[in-house]
Design a protein around this nucleic acid. Structure first.
Lengths: 323, 323
DNA sequence: CTGTTAGCGCCTTCAG
DNA sequence: CTGAAGGCGCTAACAG
């Protein structure tokens, strides 16, 4: 009984004479033999493992994304290494380095911060299988899968305008981030189309609850005329809601609100919050497919794909109160 | 320049004559040499990789746990393979099998369902490094790290009683699960200590929003006298809240409520929900330490460790209304 | 259909 | 301090 025969039997899917097959099977059972995946990878030159790097597992959007990718990986019998980068470049670079060392066959990378060029360069010199998800790294020449942020901003704006609002504020993430810019742009486009409405202010800083708090406080203090707010993420919205409550202000009634993401529990609040919903699972799936294709060596086009978002109308947008 | 020398230099932490060291360094840079982790593992006999299997990444409790474990792993320069089992035995067995194949050095296993013995047996025959987290698998002879569920139930009960309630309901997870039983037991103990209070009903089924909904509906329909509810998880509480709202019932005012876990956004609601908080991060850390110790071959005691929970008092418990 | 021969890339003796 | 040799466990290529 040669090792090669066993290997072929286990792994090549070749049919064997029943006698031999049985002999192998019983030997395996008695010896408690278990193939070593590392040796296998070493010999075959691939690992059948993918990695997904996200800024924060605890963020509902990313855990949803992770969940979707995980399902895909399972379907394809691939392992998924889930990496939390804490949104730090150093850790992102670390995972790119692991890819180069062939620790896994491909990397799905979700960033959430501006890049000074380091990341882009690392990505471009890795020449390996990387797909960017959710947020851009400018200058990186790889496949990218995003949602249509501009459309989202536009939908939010149009909806707010349709309710009769004329003084609108935008609370966004980091100023230079693609998502921040595009969402603002979409909102701005919608508002420009209306002659008498205006974008009172754009408060951009971080996709965090803290920023939501600060920005909302700022609006209350200095922008009394604002009657509707478009928040760039659920996290931001959380902060907004906290401040609103502290000031005894009610959503819809005193201030209209549209959020972005729609992965949290915002629909359970009273009133439930109207949202622009990202197709999180589809983003994950598309990105996965792109990566899988790249790995199997299919035509690697490095195009950017944008998935449509949609407005989920609930009850946080109402007509503005007459002052 | 022999490979052995380079290996020692890179990996053994040995000092080399500056000349040689420099020669190696420049060679590495020019050739773009990158050590292959799989070959390394194969040769060294360990992978420096750990796995954490959880029922659902999207569940806040588990993603918090994962996050804590991830931090530990990073500190120790270990890789963490995060696995979502969808709470299915088959997938859990799959990960145990991977451990046996030495795909990783150790496994942190969080279950969320009753076991018919299959899991316990797989765990016991794996004879490898496994630590059970959060939920028990009866009969498994490995290290275990749980929170003190009974204490949690007792705290919740005492708090509810102190507010004056005499008719209390428990909405718990799967009936046979350790956590369900222990939380109920704690609650029951507290109630027994009071002569005139009683545990009206125990509705146990699943740690899900759906179950929370069903159970709360049941209470409204058939247990009108209940004035306070102890919910076994945040998910359940979410369902409870939905039904309450649909019936125009207000928390605290119409029904007092204590939740378990305290990982969701329940503190942002109005009124914020009083909770028994699990020390999620500590659970993760302790479990990690146990596993790390087992891997490095330290004295492997298979004791069960219980971490204390605490009551976070907010505003969802008030005196019962006079009927 | 099966066995033999080479590696995959690294680390760990053991010599020099 | 350095080099050579062997092996980790498996698969691929090449005979038979």
């Amino acid at each position: 009984m040669a090792p090669a025969t066993v290997s072929r039997f286990l792994n090549g899917g070749i049919e064997l004479p029943p006698a031999t097959a049985e002999r192998i099977r019983s030997a395996i059972a008695e010896l408690g033999y278990r193939p070593n995946p590392y040796a296998r990878s070493l010999s075959r030159g691939r690992t059948d493992m993918l990695a997904l790097a996200i800024p924060d597992i605890q963020n509902a959007f990313f855990s949803q994304l992770a969940s979707a990718v995980d399902r895909c990986a399972e379907e394809q019998n691939l392992s998924l290494l889930l990496c939390s980068t804490a949104n730090k470049t150093a850790r992102e670079l670390d995972f790119i380095e692991r890819l180069r060392r062939r620790f896994f066959d491909g990397l799905l990378l979700a960033t959430n911060h501006a890049d000074d060029g380091t990341l882009a360069e690392a990505i471009n010199t890795a020449d390996s299988n990387i797909v960017l998800v959710d947020e851009d790294v400018p200058g990186a020449r790889v496949a990218k899968v995003f949602s249509d942020n501009e459309q989202g901003g536009f939908l939010a704006g149009s909806h707010i305008l349709a309710a009769g609002h004329r003084a609108i504020a935008y609370i966004g993430g980091p100023p230079k981030l693609m998502s921040t810019v595009e969402r603002r742009q979409g909102l701005s486009n919608a508002i420009s189309a209306s002659s008498d409405a205006r974008l009172v202010c754009c408060l951009e800083h971080d996709y965090t609850r803290e920023h939501g708090r600060a920005a909302m406080a700022e609006i209350i203090a200095h922008h009394r005329d604002v009657t509707a707010v478009f928040a760039g993420s659920d996290e931001i919205t959380l902060g907004v809601l906290e401040v609103l409550r502290e000031h005894g202000l009610r959503v819809a009634c005193d201030l209209s609100l549209v959020t972005f993401d729609d992965v949290g529990l915002l629909h359970l609040l009273d009133p439930p919050v109207t949202a622009i919903r990202q197709p999180t699972a589809e983003i994950g799936r598309k990105a996965f497919e792109r990566l899988a294709a790249a790995i199997t060596g299919e035509s690697v086009e490095i195009a950017t794909e944008r998935l449509p978002v949609r407005l989920v109308e609930r009850a946080s947008v109402a007509a503005p109160r007459r002052a």
